[in-house]
């Protein structure tokens, strides 16, 4: 890294900083991409890129929901448990009761959205700490999943249901299509719709939002409902992926989701989140896992690299954007 070189390119001292502040994390993704493409032959195949997108789709869904909640100044630790609950519900609906696959999925996802409503209600109505609320509901939900499944795994042999993960739309796997659709939807909600503005305003300054006529109550609930809904969708994909309905699925999935949000520039204080940022965060995490597996890096180091990435992303954001604030 030639410091002198960069100095002479950017005559205006602030220009690089502003650029990096806005697109820094994208630049890092790009650098990773180039480095992997150059050094790992098997990385640069189309099928591997599709493979990565397929792998990140589940974390992606959860991360989008998480980012909305974090943007309101909260956190949703119940997402993993909600995935597991969906799995157990699907096991009962499809395999035990023989219900229609689409209907079962819709019901399971709606149930998760309802659980999101409960989370949101507890947070918004009683002003409880989101961390505490979702930490507790996560236990309840996971327990519910165990009750429903009697802690037994059900094999999801339904061919139609297996298509959720294995199905293709043209050359694109169905989970990738879903991720794409959700990305578009989240972009519209967060950047084009009233709700998105309300979410960001609520997280940015709750009192100011109230003084501007924003119903903080409903905004918070909406955020948790979105998170519940999306973790439900992720749960459906995960169940189809493992073709197994059991209560110990998706343990610890909230960590990767939070990591994706933070790497993508979502502020833990609330009020700052962008869909492209979170997408980049999701992809960076996917690249770390996939790239390092292909390189053959010991898995212990992957965990370390992920940790370093998060701190680096937060530092980058802090250093680059301090002046803008």
């Amino acid at each position: 890294m030639d410091k002198k070189g960069s100095k002479s390119i950017y005559t205006n001292k602030d220009e690089l900083r502003l650029f990096m502040g806005k697109y820094g994390i994208g630049v890092i993704l790009f650098v990773m991409l180039i480095a992997l493409i150059i050094t790992v032959p098997s990385f640069r195949t189309t099928s591997n890129f599709i493979n990565i997108l397929k792998q990140v789709s589940i974390n992606g869904m959860i991360a989008y929901g998480m980012c909305v909640v974090i943007a309101t100044g909260g956190i949703d630790l119940a997402v993993g448990a909600q995935c597991a609950l969906v799995a157990c519900l699907l096991g009962q609906f499809i395999m035990k009761m023989g219900m229609n696959v689409l209907l079962s999925c819709a019901l399971a996802v709606l149930f998760c959205a309802a659980l999101g409503f409960v989370n949101g209600f507890l947070v918004a109505k009683f002003n409880m700490f989101p961390f505490v609320v979702t930490l507790s509901t996560q236990l309840i939900i996971r327990g519910l999943a165990q009750v429903i499944s009697s802690a037994q795994a059900i094999s999801m042999t339904n061919a139609q249901f297996k298509l959720v993960y294995l199905g293709m739309v043209g050359p694109i796997p169905f989970p990738v299509v879903m991720l794409f659709v959700v990305t578009i939807l989240m972009y519209m909600i967060l950047h084009w719709m009233k709700l998105g503005r309300y979410i960001l305003a609520t997280g940015g300054n709750e009192k100011a939002a109230i003084a501007s006529g924003v119903s903080v109550f409903w905004t918070k609930i909406a955020a948790y409902v979105i998170s519940g809904f999306l973790s439900g969708v992720a749960g459906v994909i995960l169940t189809s992926k493992t073709s197994s309905a059991q209560s110990n699925l998706a343990v610890g999935y909230e960590t990767d989701a939070v990591a994706a949000c933070v790497i993508g520039g979502t502020s833990f204080a609330g009020g700052v989140a962008t869909t492209p940022g979170v997408l980049i965060g999701i992809l960076i995490i996917g690249f770390i896992y996939n790239g390092m597996n292909l390189i053959g890096v010991n898995s212990y180091y992957q965990t370390i690299v992920k940790g370093i990435m998060i701190i680096a992303a937060v530092l980058l954001d802090l250093v680059m954007n301090r002046k803008n604030r």
């Binding site: 410091k3 960069s6 890092i28 650098v31 390189i295 890096v297 990435m309 250093v319």
Partner: peptide, 17 residues
């Protein structure tokens, strides 16, 4: 600091690879 950071990341990747 920023350049250092970017450097570390790139170096990390190189080292990994």
């Amino acid at each position: 600091l920023a350049i250092l950071l970017a450097g570390v990341m790139v170096f990390g990747l190189m080292a990994c690879s």
